[in-house]
């Protein structure tokens, strides 16, 4: 049967062939070259490059700020998704569309806009300055930029699951005597765990590689406010290609691990929320 339907549809060789060719030329071969280029380094050289103090400091900042930003978005993303799905209020459709702004706004624009706002004489910067809080050109600035970049991910992964949630579960919980908070904590939240984790990982992965929005607000001080992607650019500008490649390979390996995690989480989510 399967063989017969396959023969009716045209263009299998053409479309698959073109897909694999284009994928290979644009993505796979250039990426493979990066790994091949690192083989010019010995293991000791590679290890020395990727664990130099300045590089380690950049990992700490990139991973730490990305994790915190994803955590902030985990909380507020769930809140925004909840409000958009469960409540009616004026301007809701506008707010819903606005959530995707960080996807649509070029990162460089986000970077200079956030810097202007949080600079000591900016709209929010001058309010925070008397409190002793400096955001622009500090690590806090990196956190603000990464929070902006990751904002839509959790909202957009949680929203559809929350929409499809069977109200019967909540009614049963309530009729069995659970308070609203207990229902949320014990019934709704466990069902939202897969999309929350998927959204968190997506936001974290995006923040880790982010460059454009961060470089303007970070101040870019080595050891202090220098993120890993910026360090790669610095190495390239010094024509230290092996150094740049080694750090890039570390980032690529982390990205691929996160991609596998995301695929696993989506498979896990679908297992429990199989479409009927």
């Amino acid at each position: 049967m399967a063989r017969k339907t396959t023969s009716v549809m045209p263009g299998f060789k053409l479309t698959l062939g073109y897909t694999v060719l284009y994928l290979g030329l644009i993505v796979l071969i250039p990426l493979a070259c990066t790994f091949w280029k690192t083989s010019a380094l010995t293991w000791d050289q590679f290890w020395h490059t990727v664990t130099a103090p300045r590089v380690l400091a950049s990992y700490r900042l990139s991973f730490g700020a990305s994790f915190l930003a994803a955590l902030i978005n985990l909380f507020f993303g769930l809140l925004v998704a909840w409000v958009l799905v469960r409540y009616e209020f004026w301007g809701k459709r506008f707010v819903d569309a606005l959530v995707d702004l960080p996807f649509a706004l070029p990162t460089a624009v986000a970077g200079i806009a956030l810097t202007a706002i949080y600079a000591p004489n900016g709209w929010l910067g001058q309010l925070l300055a008397p409190l002793g809080l400096k955001v622009a050109y500090t690590r806090l600035g990196v956190l603000v930029a990464l929070t902006f970049i990751g904002l839509p991910f959790i909202v957009r992964t949680v929203q559809p699951v929350l929409e499809d949630l069977d109200p019967g579960f909540e009614e049963s919980a309530a009729s069995l005597g659970a308070t609203r908070w207990q229902t949320f904590w014990r019934v709704i939240l466990p069902m939202l765990r897969p999309p929350l984790l998927t959204g968190f990982t997506l936001a974290f992965a995006r923040a880790l590689g982010e460059y454009g929005s961060v470089v303007f607000i970070a101040g870019n001080m080595p050891m202090k406010t220098e993120i890993t992607p910026l360090l790669i650019i610095t190495r390239l500008e010094e024509f230290d290609y092996p150094g740049a490649t080694a750090i890039a390979v570390v980032m690529l390996v982390v990205s691929f691990a996160l991609l596998l995690t995301i695929n696993f989480l989506q498979w896990w989510g679908h297992r429990y929320h199989a479409p009927v």
Partner: peptide, 18 residues
């Protein structure tokens, strides 16, 4: 989906290496 998980900086760098 791979290009989505690669940092933009690395995306540019791979062509410089090539």
């Amino acid at each position: 989906d791979l290009p989505f998980s690669v940092s933009p900086v690395v995306s540019g760098m791979i062509y410089v290496l090539l």
